[in-house]
Every structure is written in C-alpha cells, then in structure tokens.
Amino acid sequence: MLKIDNLHANAGDTEILKGLSLAIDAGEVHAIMGPNGSGKSTLAHVLAGRDGYEVTSGSVTYQGTDLLPLAPEERAWHGIFLGFQYPIEIPGVNNTYLLKAALNARRKFHGEPEIDAAQFLRIIKDKARMMKMDQSFLNRSVNEGFSGGEKKRNEVFQMAVLEPQLAILDETDSGLDIDALKVVAAGVNALRSKDRAFLLVTHYQRLLDYIEPDHVHVLAGGRIIKSGDKTLAHELEAQGYDWVLREAAGA
C-alpha cells in the first residue's frame, strides 16, 4: 500500500529525514517509536503533504502511484488520514460541518453524490458513541475548548467517520489517561481490516498493549535504524533507546 524509499526531507534548511525506507502492506499495523526530535512528526507531515518540507531525494509510492505531487486534500481523497500530534482549535468551524464537507469533497472527487443527511447523522452519532464522546461535541467548534484528551479522541472520531485506507496517527496516545487510551485503542481496533493500514507514531509501549502492531520500527536521526515485531517495543520500554542507538552506530 505504501512504499517509502530512501526518503530525504528538509524542514527549512535542516535535513530531518535522512534516507528513510519503510513498506506497509494493506491490513498491517506499523508502530514507529523513537526519541524526541528524531523526525517522527516530520515523516507524518511529509506523508500528509504539509507545506514547509522539501523532499530532496527518494520516493513515496502509495497504492502504486507517486504520492509526493499530490495536494493534502487529494491525499485525503485517496484515503490518507493524519491524526495530529497537536490538534489545533478552529473556532467558528463546526465539527459536524467539517466532517460533512470533508466526506462530500471526497465523494465529489470520486464522482459520487453528496451523502444523505439522515445517513450522515446516523454515522456521526454511532461513531461519537463508540468514542464515548458527548453528542454536544458534535456541534462545537473543532477542538475549541477541548481538553488535551478530548482533542485526541476527536481525531480518532474523525478518522472513524472518514474511514481512511491509511491512517497515520501521530502520538495520539500522548497525554491520555488509561480510560481515554482504551477508548482510542478501541476506535482504532474497530477500524482494523484487511484492506486498511495504520502507521502509529508513539512514544510509549503502553498504546501497543491495546493495539497489537505487526511491525515496530525505531526512528532515530531521520532513519529507521531497527525494525522488529511487537517484542521490540517491550525491549525499548524496558531498556530505553540507547542500546539501539549504540547498535546502529556500531553496525
């Protein structure tokens, strides 16, 4: 589904991604862990098409086509979703209104008619219930006045409504208490399917207790320096990153 090959990317004048390669197949859940500042959010942003990053070499192929020339909205229409590490507040833009506009923009791109209003309402009510979000959140401005945990929950709620093919969740688990973490994990697990893939950026092995990854990668210095299965996450939790960094330096 997604193939990243030797990707180099700058933010401003600084090279952040320095030859990153990663392949994700449909149905898989990949976790990316790594020290602060190692380039995890940069990777997520480059995949979502954010301005301000320059890809200097390498390639990203998504569903067989070159992803990099596409605008952020086009990537969304093709099924890419980014859950933000720091979801922003957008006063005056209603949560429900945003989701309806987003769904309809995608449907329009695919030559489908606008979503039926009643059906849409049913969907958002169901998903809000699944995310244990109060219905009142639906009619509030996007993230405005939400607590940190509510914002993260809202990201997963949006994901659940939009049903992407490839969901990139950037530290969605940070700042969540255990109950919220379980809800977020349940939201992700409910969406897992054989033709959908997840890229979970996380700091803590904790999330992976609830969402079992197929692959775990360590991102450091702008590259994947080690990959393994879920046991790698446990090792990192127990021993930190130093041994991986040393191992990579020694190799």
């Binding site: 952020p72 957008i90 945003l98 506009a101």
Partner: peptide, 27 residues
C-alpha cells in the same frame, strides 16, 4: 496550520480558506 488541518481532512484549499474567513465572522 488551520488551512493545513482542513486540507488534511479533504477540504479543498479554496474552500478551507473560505471556511476560515466565514468562521472568523461567524463568531
């Protein structure tokens, strides 16, 4: 940041800008 957030959800850039201007007034 707001423009990017909306675009990442699938709102075309022009619509995202309009939405933000309208939201600013709507408040």
């Amino acid at each position: 940041n707001s423009i990017f957030y909306l675009r990442a959800r699938g709102i075309p850039e022009a619509d995202a800008r309009m939405m933000l201007v309208a939201a600013f007034a709507q408040e």
